[in-house]
C-alpha cells in the first residue's frame, strides 16, 4: 500500500487514574501499537481523575475510552482493549504483512 507508510495514527486514551482497568487498557494498547504500528503512532494518555475538564471535549462517558483522531474519521473505542481483534478492526489497521 503506497499511502499506508505515510499514514500516522494519532491516538488519545482516556483513563481514570491507576485503576486496574485503565492500566490494562494502556498495556493492551501499547501491545497492539508496537506490533502493528511501530513508529507510526502518537499516543496521548489523559487521566480524567487529574483533568476531569478534558472529558467534555471528546464527550467521554465510559472509561477507558480510546479516541482515534487520525486517520479520519474520528472513532471511539471503549473498554479495556482486551479483545485484540476488535481493537485492530476498530482502529482500522491493515494487516498487510
Amino acid at each position: 500500500m503506497t499511502g499506508a507508510d505515510a499514514e500516522r495514527w494519532l491516538l488519545r486514551l482516556y483513563i481514570a487514574g491507576g485503576s486496574p482497568r485503565s492500566q490494562a487498557a494502556l498495556a493492551n494498547l501499547k501491545g497492539v501499537c508496537d506490533e502493528y504500528l511501530p513508529g507510526r503512532y502518537e499516543l496521548e494518555v489523559i487521566d480524567l481523575v487529574a483533568h476531569p475538564e478534558r472529558a467534555r471535549a471528546d464527550q467521554i462517558v465510559a472509561v477507558p475510552t480510546l479516541v482515534r483522531r487520525l486517520p479520519p474519521p474520528i472513532t471511539k473505542i471503549i473498554g479495556d482493549l482486551s479483545m485484540k481483534e476488535r481493537v485492530i478492526v476498530a482502529l482500522d489497521i491493515e494487516m498487510t504483512d
Binding site: V49, A55, A62, I74, I77, I78, L81, S82, A90
Partner: peptide, 19 residues
Amino acid sequence: EIAETGDYDLDGLFLRIGH
C-alpha cells in the same frame, strides 16, 4: 461511532459530574 472492546465503566461520567 463507538466500538466496545472489553470491560468498561462510566467513570468518565462520574468525573464529569463531580467536576
